[in-house]
Design a binder for these strands. Structure first.
Lengths: 267, 267
DNA sequence: CACCGATTGACACAAAATGCCACATTGTAC
DNA sequence: GTACAATGTGGCATTTTGTGTCAATCGGTG
């Protein structure tokens, strides 16, 4: 019998990832089901679940485990929307960043994609209002992260308010990446709230170069508040061609447009 | 020179590239799998992984390595240490909290357990330096969270520095829960760094009542810096009886000691 | 609500896989 | 040939996984 390589067992950590993913998707997973899936004993699965439960990632119930998080849906959901497009924008944005720069990253899922793409930059100093971005980037070696303090907005999981405006003013940024709520046909970025728009306006004026990162799902979304100082921004980074009218309007204002290809950078 | 390299074996550098690529694509790679793939010994692969891990390109796990960002760092580990004891402390601490209070939560895994135990309180206002606590509590309904801004310390995933000291001074707190690095035989809390101790000292003086939450693994740990204003704290919450000498010293200072049972409150 | 069979959980111990170290071997450059 | 780095080997410690046994739980049934 040529000992055919048996279906190789997975690394324990990969099992853990997969279990979490399945539990997250289905709401609950069974011990027997997982044991068959991974081709390991039920005892091993039980140990995996116990391990994950101790770390607060799951709740163990009779017969298996259920997902723990009370609700994290809003942000996670938005993160999944057009993930490929946002990743492409992230890579395009990261290409503008050199080692050692001082960056400002706004909150939002598109800017989070930018943060992901910064993984192999060195010696950055990053300021942000987003808890997720701060958490991600502070784990990188040789990266300093400054979180702008303020009241935490639950929908964005980011700080807002007067304290943020104050804190922004204390810095000097080489580059800012800013999100937005929508894009008007006149190629202007708008926001949901007055406070949010004001905050983003300040970000523009505090950075030597401010880029808006906008994925195409926002192209036809109309939100109420205009962002101040928009004309002082460097331009837009998007994952799809702008509507013709917007492209023309943008050019008239003298702002640049970078379109993230997505096909040319395979990583 | 026969420029033809025997296809049998790759250059070490090429192996490294290939390993990184595979790890990046699959999330994790196994030692055995790579050894077969490159036709080298497992020890060589282990050395490769170690090399790459030392440069921060991978994280080593049992059986192989994972992509750098694929799992959380040391914080998760500390969270698991004495999880039951910390949960008991958390419940005991939460019992001191009434709806509508203004709290200050220090960073650390024990204070994170306190945050977990606050789940069914209403109308709290919580200030914290910990990213994890902010993220957890901002998802609760009717809870306002304020994150004190500052430089993010990667080991604690919390803000530190002059900005935090500034921000603390702007608030008034009903109650503060504060962590510490160790407990001296004289029942004094000590910290690892001068800056950390100063920060915690300010927390004591800014709160009407400041409690230290210390699990028993810190009882015999000696850290260098004394925390200022310690005598102004309300007391200690622990998950085990204090060493006798410490208990006596604490009473002499007029500080209270609450011992979390763990058995009487089933989660 | 007591009873029953089937499933699941908990634990102890055995087996297997992996990690680690010291040292031998190989390959390469000078 | 020598020196140096890279790789392989073998022994032993540690971690992970499997197995078997027995207790606890679940889902019905009468």
């Amino acid at each position: 019998m040529p000992a055919q390589t048996p279906p190789e067992r997975l690394l324990a950590t990969r099992r853990h990832d997969e279990i979490l993913q399945r539990a997250g998707a289905a709401g609950a997973v069974g011990v027997g089901e997982l044991a068959r899936l991974f081709n390991v004993s039920r005892e091993t699965i039980r140990r995996d679940l116990k391990y994950l439960a101790e770390r607060g990632r799951l709740d163990i119930v009779h017969g298996g485990a259920t997902r723990r998080d009370a609700h994290e849906p809003a942000l996670a959901q938005r993160l999944a929307d057009n993930a490929a497009g946002k990743a492409a924008i992230g890579r395009r944005a990261a290409a503008l960043v050199s080692d050692g720069m001082v960056l400002l990253l706004d909150c939002g899922t598109t800017t989070l994609a930018v943060a992901h793409a910064l993984r192999d930059r060195q010696g950055l100093t990053v300021c942000t209002t987003s808890l997720a971005i701060a958490q991600l980037l502070c784990r990188l070696p040789r990266t300093r992260v400054h979180l702008l303090g303020g009241e935490v907005d639950p929908t964005e999981e980011a700080t807002t308010g007067i304290d943020v405006l104050d804190a922004i003013a204390r810095f000097r940024f080489d580059l800012a990446f800013i999100g937005g709520g929508g894009l008007t046909p006149e190629a202007e970025i708008t926001d949901y709230t007055r406070a949010g728009a004001e905050q983003r306006g300040r970000m523009i004026t505090t950075a030597a170069q401010a880029w808006f990162v906008i994925d195409h799902s926002k192209f036809h979304r109309l939100t109420p508040v205009r962002i101040p100082h928009f004309a002082a921004a460097a331009g837009l980074i998007t994952d799809a061609p702008l509507p013709p009218s917007a492209a023309a309007a943008l050019a008239r204002r003298g702002l640049a447009h970078l379109q993230a290809g997505g096909r040319n950078q395979p990583p």
